[in-house]
Every structure is written in structure tokens, then in C-alpha cells.
Amino acid sequence: MNRFVSIKEILDLEVFKDAYLLSPRIGLNNKVDNITIMDIPDITNWLTANDLLIIGQSLKHYLNIQLIEKLRQCNISGIITKNKFEEGISKEVANLCTEYKIPFIICNDKYSWSQIMTPIQQRIYQHQNIILEDNVTFYNKLIESITKKGSLSTLCNEIFNISGLSLAMIDQNSTLIDATNDFDWIRYLKDFRSNYLVQQEIIGYDFNGQPFMGIKYLNPYLKKTHEEILLFPVYFQGKSIGYVLLKKM
């Protein structure tokens, strides 16, 4: 499952089967968190990142380069309008949308705004529910497993059994606390040094689809085997108490 709803996924909805993009193949992977309709001139004061904006009658009065500049600053996902309003889109506006990778979706006039908005909202809610259900399932399985074992010393292997992730935990002194059995963590973490921390990379994404960063660890052993390990700090009451290390799949 995708980590968020994208413009490409929105375009697969039945209501968009006759729709087209003003500038094809741009912004298809833009994230969509919400959909809103432009009903006031200063709509940008009320937008948030990843909003998909509907513009109807107000297009011919307010859609200009200045508005597109503001929409870019708001980091919107894209714009939706209807065929009958397309003539109000100037070439300059269209070119700027292309430059900023703001997809402009032109819909069939036969659909009302509610007919367009409802399936988009439903898709967003469905996606959020699936993520929530997956998270609940994961935590329930993890808690159940740890409860049966009666110990946190096998935490990494329990996570591995549920998710397939190969990971380890070390404390502030670089002492190995726990690790999965599928990888020779002791060997690859031997002589753990801070100068082997080479760069930051995206480890994963949170519930909102936002990336969180980890640090790439690369020592001579890893260079030889072309393995990659990412680590990120664990905090308790504002203080770093150790690191979780993840073997990159």
C-alpha cells in the first residue's frame, strides 16, 4: 500500500475517467491530505500543505500569477476545475503551474463539485483507516508477543517476526542491548565509531506520511559486503538514551 494518497491515485477514481491534466505527467506523486474549494479571494490564508484546491467561477477573476505564487508557498497538491472554466486559465498561469509541478486537473462539466469532492474524501479516509488498522494490528501483536515472553530482551526478534525488519539496539556507550538473529550484528558493529556515521537518509514515514531521518552507518565490514545500516536516536524525557539500528532492505 502507498504511504499516502497521491494525485495519480485520485485520477484513477471513476469521476475522473474523462478528466485530463493541463500539463501531462507533472505532480502525479504529489501527496493529497485534504480537498477544499476556493470560495473566497484570500483562500491561501486558509490552506494547509497538501491541500487539493477546487476553483470554479472565481477562476476567471482571481487565478493569476500572484495566486499561483502563493499556492506554491502553501505547497498545495494540485488544482481542479471544469472544462467550462478552462478558457480562463492564461498561458502564463499554465506555464507557472508546470514549472512548480502543480497539476491542473480539468474535469467533465457534468459532475457537481460534491460529486467530485466526495470520492476524494472517501479515498483519503479509507487510506487513513487502513494505516490506523495496520498500526493497531502491529502493536497488538507486539504487546501480545512480549507479554507471553515476559521479557523485553527479545524485543528485536519479536518485531522481526511481525514485520520482517532486521534491527538492533545499542545504548549511549555503543553496547549492544538486543538484536535480531538474522544478521551478524556483533561483527558488523565491532569497534563502533562516530566517524563511520556518514550521512542522513530517510528511514521511513510517520502516520501523516512525513519522512523521518536516520543516519547511515558505514564501516569497513559493511563496505566489503555492500550492506547498509541506518540508525536513529531514541529519546526519553528529552535525553538521548541510545540508538535503534535498522538493516536496509
Rank of each mutant, 00 (worst) to 15 (best):
Leu155Asn: 06
Glu201Ile: 05
Gly164Ser: 10
Gln199Val: 06
Ser166Thr: 13
Gln172Ala: 03
Asn135Val: 01
Arg123Pro: 01
Gly164Ile: 11
Asp184Arg: 02
Asn208Thr: 04
Val198Gln: 06
Cys156Asn: 13
Asp206Pro: 01
Glu133Lys: 12
Lys141Ser: 13
Gln122Asn: 11
Asp182His: 10
Gly209Ile: 03
Asp178Met: 01
Asn157Pro: 00
Asn181His: 13
Leu142Ala: 07
Phe183Gly: 03
Pro211Phe: 05
Asp206Gln: 07
Gln128His: 08
Glu133Tyr: 10
Trp185Ser: 05
Glu201Cys: 07
Asp182Ala: 12
Gly214His: 07
Asn129Pro: 00
Tyr205Ser: 04
Asp191Gln: 10
Ser166Cys: 08
Arg193Gly: 03
Trp185Gly: 04
Ile159Ala: 05
Ser153Tyr: 04
Asp184Ile: 12
Asn181Tyr: 12
Pro119Gln: 12
Ser194Ile: 14
Ile215Pro: 01
Leu167Pro: 01
Ile186Trp: 01
Ser145Cys: 06
Tyr139Ser: 04
Phe192Glu: 00
Leu189Tyr: 08
His127Ala: 03
Leu132Trp: 02
Asp178Ala: 13
Lys149Phe: 00
Thr154Glu: 15
Arg123Asn: 08
Tyr139Asn: 07
Ile146Trp: 05
Ile202Val: 15
Asp134His: 13
Asp171Ile: 07
Ile202Thr: 15
Lys141Val: 01
Ala168Lys: 03
Asp134Leu: 13
Glu158Pro: 00
Ile186Arg: 08
Leu189Ser: 03
Arg123Val: 02
Thr154Trp: 00
Leu132Lys: 11
Leu142Met: 13
Lys148Ser: 11
Arg123Thr: 07
Ile177Glu: 10
Leu189His: 03
Ser151Pro: 00
Phe160Leu: 02
Asn135Lys: 14
Gln126Thr: 08
Glu144Asn: 15
Asn157Tyr: 05
Ser174Tyr: 14
Lys149Ile: 02
Lys148Asp: 09
Thr137Ala: 12
Met213Asp: 00
Trp185Cys: 07
Ala179Cys: 15
Leu155Val: 15
Asn135Leu: 08
Phe160Ala: 10
Thr154Cys: 06
Lys141Phe: 04
His127Val: 02
Asn161Phe: 02
Met169Tyr: 15
Gly209Asp: 03
Gln200Asp: 14
Ile177Trp: 06
Asp184Tyr: 11
Asp206Asn: 15
Ile130Ser: 06
Arg193Phe: 08
Asn181Arg: 13
Tyr205His: 14
Leu189Asp: 02
Ile215Phe: 05
Thr137Asn: 14
Ile124Trp: 05
Asp182Gln: 13
Gly150Pro: 03
Pro119Ser: 11
Val198Trp: 00
Ile143Gly: 02
Gln121Ile: 02
Ile177Lys: 12
Leu197Gly: 00
Glu201Asn: 11
Ser174Asn: 15
Leu142Lys: 09
Gly209His: 04
Thr180Trp: 11
Asn195Ala: 01
Thr180Ala: 10
Lys190Met: 10
Leu189Glu: 01
Asp134Trp: 00
Lys141Thr: 06
Glu144Trp: 01
Ile120Arg: 03
Gln200Pro: 00
Leu197Lys: 09
Gln200Leu: 07
Leu132Gly: 00
Ala168Gln: 02
Gln172Thr: 14
Glu144Leu: 05
Tyr196Ser: 08
Asn140Gln: 15
Gly214Ile: 06
Ile186Tyr: 06
Pro119Arg: 10
